[in-house]
Design a protein around this nucleic acid. Structure first.
Lengths: 354, 354
DNA sequence: GTTAGCACTCATTCGGTGTGAGTGCTAACC
DNA sequence: GGTTAGCACTCACACCGAATGAGTGCTAAC
């Protein structure tokens, strides 16, 4: 069974209507509201076909049809029209980026807030991180007689600190010596060759085995770094505005999902295909059981050469994909532009790295 | 009109019953369920008096009575029995602290989670901060040719970093020199005397005016530090389990409140009376309009000598105050103990500071 | 292939009727 | 004076049946 033009139009009508009203829509309504030039009976036959194809479903006999996940998928892939932002929307997105530039964490929080205000969905933003990290600089900073902070500047200019505790922490001068040696060792060998680094370091500072070992561990953690990605949400209360979540259990699921930081982050990472496009997961297409009734639209923004963060929009499957995609495209563009102007301090390190 | 013993008992019965069932309770039910030795008619008269005193209210004629905010206040202040934790509860609270010691942020997240699981309320935890801060150590760490991280270890051993950007960032050796000088300057003068510090530094490094100024600014920010307190929540979905929040607007209010980080933090700080007790705000006693239907039980945990963070439990005014207070007392005790053993590295700095 | 007509389904709304938990008041009782 | 029994009254809520109406599938005619 193929989809002729009319059937496409009927599917589109159903989806557009349902996105707006959240109510099942019937053949007679379509006939009246959309001028397809055929009677409701004809539409009825077509709808029956669409249902057979799994593109729409009936919540119960004697109700109209609503789109299925597959229906949305077809719509998103083949039929969706891109929507121009209004001037106000564009201005808001532009201003929020311009006004908060320079403080990446605050910028991302405000960005999340702006998108939430614009779309009325729930926004999740992860801070920038990099898939393959190198270390720019390491510095031990004394805290007290038994602890010091290992401050690690990563390739993508994130600054991390890890507290190291040993029996007896050396004085500041010694810490500086160790830091210098470690920086040299990292430059000489690749990070892949942690054994050589460890060997050199332990040879130079045999009396500080514990400290050196823990410092190396901290560096490894910073490089792997999948553990503790910062993570902002905004507009979580918007969920409760949608009739599909008036069922408390369904709403609870979404809130539970928002607390499962780890799972959300891997969900965002999932397919690894970091093309520049906005990507869409509809209903069951994501594998968090708490989010089966939601769609997720997500996009990566870039921060420096290699690192990126993700902005995710979570809403009902009946979400306004077209608007959401436009908004995300716009904000990504703004962010990428502004961040590009920030990273001009990079010219000096071009020769030393790998 | 005074409150005789029987009226106290009746009020207590109403409150205990309502905490459990969330249903208005009438005179006949009290007479049957609680053995007060008087008839329902007598209880009826007493309840009328309690209502006149504003301790209980009727949601509508021909319904039973429910406690008012003032009723809960009286209960909490004068009548509440402290409740022993069960062995399981105590164990859970003990284990969560023991198993996550050493990573303060993760520890606090897990603590929030444990309390949420135990109480079924929503938990908010702020990271440790100090009202009057001193600086332990400052270190500039290079990032690229125009930027460096100012890593600042505060009195309470928090490690903060602030990215500084200047026209041309000096090499690592120079950064170390500046860092050393700054550490000496801070030790020589009190932080109150920022002008002397600034004077000394600018005299030593007249060519790095921009960098030094920005570094001083970063130090000031770290000291003030009221800006960006980290903040964890757990169990937000629990809110939806309570019948008082089945009204979507009321539930939304709570979620909105949880996004207003700043207001929540000042709410927690509010009365500044840092006695060791658990403190309770009932209904309208807090001044966030979004939380008028909630009660908040909060307690400070201590981290180092002077700094502290707050654990807040948010639930319906009909919350189990007794259990909540017990749980908070227990977790505070565990945290304080464990954190005390962590801060034994402090003996060395005793002589140098003010 | 399209349409009109028809029988049928079923969620939802609406009015009416009990039911029961609750109250306040009064008069009698100890 | 405090306590109690009794009674009339209120009112949220649950339940029931009928009416409504949006929707369907099927069939026969165009």
């Amino acid at each position: 069974m193929d989809l002729n033009d009319r059937k496409f139009k009927i599917l589109e009508a159903i989806i557009n209507d349902y996105i707006q009203t959240a109510e099942p829509i019937g053949s007679r309504t379509i006939a009246k509201k959309y001028d397809l030039g055929v009677s409701s009976a004809t539409i009825r036959n077509d709808m029956s076909d669409l249902e057979e194809l799994g593109l729409i479903v009936q919540p119960h006999t004697s109700a109209g049809r609503i789109p299925s996940d597959r229906g949305y998928r077809l719509y998103v892939d083949k039929m969706m029209q891109s929507r121009e932002l209004t001037q106000e929307e564009a201005d808001l997105l532009h201003d929020v980026v311009e006004n908060n530039v320079g403080q990446i964490d605050y910028l991302m929080q405000q960005t999340a807030k702006a998108i939430a205000a614009l779309t009325n969905y729930t926004i999740v933003v992860t801070e920038p991180k990099s898939p393959k990290l190198n270390i720019r600089h390491v510095q031990l900073v004394p805290i007290d007689s038994v602890s010091a902070a290992a401050v690690i500047v990563t390739e993508n200019k994130a600054v991390k600190n890890y507290v190291i505790r040993v029996q007896q922490m050396p004085e500041t001068d010694k810490l500086n010596l160790i830091s210098d040696a470690m920086n040299k060792a990292i430059k000489s060998y690749s990070l892949r060759d942690m054994e050589s680094i460890a060997g050199t370091m332990l040879q130079s500072f045999p009396e500080e085995k514990e400290l050196v070992t823990k410092l190396l561990k901290a560096i490894l953690t910073a490089v792997r770094q999948n553990d503790n990605v910062q993570f902002y949400t905004s507009g979580v209360d918007n969920i409760l505005g949608f009739p599909e979540f008036s069922n408390v259990e369904k709403a609870k699921n979404v809130f539970r999902a928002l607390e499962k930081k780890d799972m959300l982050i891997t969900l965002f990472d999932k397919d690894g295909s970091h093309d520049d496009d906005v990507r869409i997961m509809i209903g069951g297409e994501n594998n968090m059981k708490e989010l089966q009734d939601c769609s997720i639209v997500r996009a990566d923004y870039h921060y420096g050469n290699d690192s990126y963060g993700t902005i995710g929009v979570i809403g009902p499957t009946r979400m306004n994909y077209s608007q959401t995609v436009s908004v995300l495209n716009a904000i990504i563009k703004n962010l990428d532009n502004v961040i590009k102007t920030l990273s001009k301090g990079d010219n000096k390190n071009e020769d030393s790295g790998g």
